[in-house]
Design a protein around this nucleic acid. Structure first.
Length: 259
DNA sequence: ATGGCCTGATCTTCAGGA
């Protein structure tokens, strides 16, 4: 089974690229983030014609997540209990489904904006609530994974130059501790291989030639339980998809499983 | 990779992204 996660930065703009990419890679299950559309506007019909079902949790301008599968889609869960609100709004940042015997969460962790900003505290609360949500499945014997845009670089090596991140979000001890707590439920960081250079970055800013200069970050992660991680035969970042006009600023992370 | 942001809405200007 080929399973992947991709922050598409607008499903509306990325629709044709997405369809071509699914066909090119033969991906069975795809977790999507930052749809930037209403649930009604999600191209479910187009995907169905290509053989994929979709579980969509989206609310318009920002956020929005989905699980797209051609190997079944059961037990769909929109959001999770105890998910914190921001500014009184329950943002749509998580959706789960069981696809071909593998249970997956597609998550879009809040950005945090700046250290000390209310959004930063929200980000930490959100990760803590996610940890509580996945605890039972992570400890289970069935293959399970949380995939998505975590908006945290787990290690200093996961950004192109750590010296430029002094005081910035995405690399703080608090954010990394929240990720460590999540892993503490029994999840392993499935490290993808880069197709070029030495580190598997998944995001490059649109600005200032970030991609050509490889000023990237590894913030799109696959956290799998023992059954999931033990079945991984390959994992890579598809940086080819970051190239050219009309690319998302994130590249897909692809994982092959022997299940 | 052949370049020095992109997206959607509050819509020609701005918030948010990270």
């Amino acid at each position: 089974m080929r399973i992947a996660t991709w922050n598409v930065n607008s499903i509306t703009v990325r629709r044709e690229r997405l369809l071509s990419w699914l066909e090119r890679t033969g991906t069975d299950v795809l977790c999507l983030q930052e749809l930037k559309c209403d649930t009604d506007a999600f191209p479910a019909d187009t995907l169905r014609a290509a053989g994929y079902e979709a579980a969509v949790h989206a609310d318009g301008r920002w956020n929005g997540v989905a699980v797209v599968s051609r190997v079944g889609l059961d037990g769909v869960t929109h959001g999770f209990p105890g998910c914190p609100e921001y500014d009184g709004v329950a943002e749509r940042r998580a959706v789960a489904a069981t696809c071909g015997g593998v249970r997956v969460w597609s998550v879009y962790v809040p950005n945090g904006r700046e250290v000390g900003h209310p959004h930063f505290a929200y980000k930490l609360r959100w990760l803590a609530a996610l940890r509580d949500t996945v605890e039972a499945d992570a400890a289970g014997s069935a293959p399970f994974a949380v995939l998505g845009d975590f908006n945290v670089a787990p290690e200093d090596a996961d950004v192109w130059d750590i010296s430029l991140f002094e005081g910035a979000t995405h690399v703080t001890a608090e954010e990394r501790a929240a990720l460590a707590a999540l892993r503490g439920t029994g999840l392993t960081d499935v490290m993808p291989r880069p197709l070029k250079y030495d580190r598997p970055f998944t995001y490059w800013d649109y600005r200032q030639l970030g991609f050509p200069k490889n000023r990237g970050m590894r913030i799109d992660l696959v956290y799998g339980n023992a059954a999931f991680a033990g079945a991984v035969s390959d994992a890579y970042v598809d940086r080819e998809e970051r190239k050219g006009k009309g690319a998302s600023d994130h590249a897909p992370v692809v994982v092959d499983l022997d299940v």
